[in-house]
Amino acid sequence: MFVSAEDSTPSFKGFTLILPAVSVGNVGQLAVDLIISTLNMPKVGHFHTDCLIPMVGNGPYSSLEQLSTNAEVYSHSDLKLAALQIRSPVLQNKGKLFRKLLVSWIKSSGFSRTVLLSSSHAYQRDDQQLKGPALRYLLSPALQDVGDTLRELGWAELEKVSVFPGINDSDKRHYIPGGGVTKGLYADCCAESVPLAVVLLFCSEGDNVPDAFTLTNHLNYWLHLLEKSPQGATPWKVPSSWRLLFGSGIPPLLF
């Protein structure tokens, strides 16, 4: 359930919603952090649910911010863009309910399209997925009209893989190991006629900051959220909270 930070509930009619899946390397969450920080998107509310592990922390984008929670909504009215930042994993056995709540909110809010940023284990790729770039996409039937645009950008659709490799190669399905709710939410949006695009990156656990930049750059090629600098690079603004992404430095007293 969406809870507004103001007295009146903001309108998201016709907005694009960007949200992450809690997946391998937290790539989607890092990418959403970059978008919110760079566009200086104000917080307009939070998504209240008991499906996520409870958490509270300092403001991730500025020392002047209030405390942050596990699922918060940010908005940029000029760009007609909203971002739902999810900061904690879904509780065990709560995935189906969480997806149902998300789909219900997306439909009732009137978002024109939803973009799910995700990732998947690179080491579990199929042979055909080893070719080309690590970026893949999926589109629900309600958003198939943007398929030509994505293909013109050089994006590849996520391939289906055999359920029983070498035994029955005719039975294929989408396989997204390490993708969290990605596959389930995609299936739900297909069934509910929700315009959804899944944009995911094959990666491995570790320092996934470069993967987050790769994902946001590709997303920017499509949505044109930010203009490139004269030097040709997209000037993403790293959140202040990333300074402690891997903890504090090594205590000098150890040496």
Rank of each mutant, 00 (worst) to 15 (best):
L244K: 06
T114N: 03
D169E: 11
V56E: 00
S8C: 13
T69S: 09
R243V: 05
L139Y: 01
P133A: 10
G178Q: 05
V115Y: 00
C189M: 01
E6N: 12
C203M: 07
V56W: 03
L91V: 12
T182M: 07
H224V: 05
E152Y: 10
P251V: 14
E157Y: 11
D211F: 07
D50R: 03
S241G: 02
D7K: 14
Y137T: 01
D188E: 07
V161S: 13
D148G: 08
D207A: 11
E227V: 10
R173V: 15
K94L: 06
G110R: 00
S37Q: 08
A71L: 01
G180S: 03
P210K: 06
G249M: 15
L219F: 06
V103R: 03
E72Y: 00
D127R: 01
D33C: 09
Y123G: 00
F47S: 11
G14I: 11
L97T: 08
K100V: 00
V194N: 04
D148S: 11
N220Y: 04
K172S: 04
S63R: 14
P235E: 08
K13T: 10
K94A: 09
M55S: 05
A187K: 03
L116Y: 06
L244P: 04
R99K: 15
I176V: 14
K172C: 07
V181K: 12
E6T: 12
S4Y: 00
F15L: 10
L201R: 01
N26Y: 14
S63W: 11
Y186P: 15
P195A: 10
Q144H: 10
Q29L: 14
G232L: 08
L39D: 06
G45F: 03
H218N: 07
L130F: 12
G59T: 02
F246Y: 09
S8E: 11
D127C: 05
